[in-house]
Amino acid sequence: MTDTSLKYSLFKLTMIFLGGLVLLFIIAPIAGMFISNSGSGLAEVSSNKDVINSIKLTLTVSFFSTVIFAIGAIPLAYFLARNNFWGKQIVSGIIDLPVVIPHSAAGIALLGFVSRDTFVGKAAGAVGLDFVGHPAGIAIAMAFVSVPYLINAARDGFSAVPERLEKAALNLGASPARVFFTIALPLAWRSILSGLILMFARGMSEFGAVIIIAYHPMITPVLIYEWFGAFGLDYARPVATIFIVVCLAFFVLLRAVSSKKK
């Protein structure tokens, strides 16, 4: 072994050690929580109707919020990937805004936008929809904080599709819409799918913005908070554990789907 490779391996070991500390930091609390649960507590909670309903609600609302907002977010991502215009940096900044502001503040902002006495709230009220305390309101809160993940991932995906392929398709007689659906979308699909997964996962774990718009019906993060406040750590912990398992299951499943597309 030469001196350089020795140095390199020392360097490598240091890197592994430091990186390992961070990984441990992520794993330890979650593992600790799993260990401190009692089997009977978990069994009891997993058959609790409130818990089951809240998990169902969380997954469903996050799913629909992802799908509905994707209809606008994907075209926006494509537009941003393919066009340069004055103020593009500002638009990109606006898209990232929900990521950097406190989510409770986002909830307050959203409430001011969709509550019953606003224009949007009244318009929705006219068709019998009330965002406050309604799954639609939860969906909006989830989308607000999670849609940047989809837009950014999809934009990166579209940017990675060589423009030359789109030019070739146009030259071969395809309309811009056909170019989008047959060239850009299939080639960027992996990135879009991982963006969808991120948005879905981020949406279902949202707490701050949701609790302000809709305390009820209760999504699981709100339920965990309420049980913690009302009954303490021992009651909240099994719900948290079960919800993390559900989140992880979805996350692993969708990751597997997206890596298969490779």
Binding site: P162, K167, L170, N171, I183
Partner: peptide, 19 residues
């Protein structure tokens, strides 16, 4: 419009659709 010109272009890097 590009689609109506009836002029075909073969790119230097071919631009064959990989998918």
């Amino acid at each position: 419009k590009i689609q109506e010109r009836n002029i075909g272009l073969v790119f230097q890097d071919y631009a064959v659709f990989p998918h």
